[in-house]
């Protein structure tokens, strides 16, 4: 069973992602939530997290800065971007910053299963 951190400035989207993870039948234990990258870094402190799901377009610290900050700490936990941003260059930048993959919003539980099943 995996602990997952969801970083998204929309509380509605965090709830949808959380519900969809369970609907997809993924082996989820604890789900932690954060509203931006800064809060995400804070929530991660001292916790065992096996997967991070992060939006890109967020206030205070966006998803790209968040990935860079996580990797700068030496944390190798897989990070998957869940975002409305579908542009090739942005996704390339996310991958080169240390993201493992991306999922486009809107998504279905089946799409989460397909992308995340092999990581958990």
């Amino acid at each position: 069973m995996a602990n997952i951190l969801i970083v998204d400035d929309s509380s509605t989207m965090r709830k949808i992602i959380s519900r969809s993870l369970r609907q997809a039948g993924l082996p989820v234990d604890e789900i932690y939530e954060a509203g931006d990258g800064i809060e995400g870094l804070s929530v991660m402190e001292g916790k065992s997290i096996q997967l991070i799901l992060s939006d890109i377009n967020m206030p205070n610290m966006d998803g790209l800065e968040f990935i860079k900050s996580v990797r700068a700490k030496g944390v190798s936990t897989p990070i998957v971007m869940i975002t409305t941003e579908g542009g090739e260059d942005i996704l390339k930048e996310a991958i080169s910053s240390g993201a493992s993959d991306s999922i486009k919003k809107p998504f279905t539980p089946e799409q989460l299963q397909e992308k995340l099943g092999g990581m958990l």
Partner: peptide, 29 residues
Amino acid sequence: DALGEIANMLGGYVKQILSKGGLDINLSI
């Protein structure tokens, strides 16, 4: 929050139509 997120998702689609790379257009919060 819900209506904002729907606008955000729709804005993402429009951005993708106008910008294949995605770096020359920014979406607001």
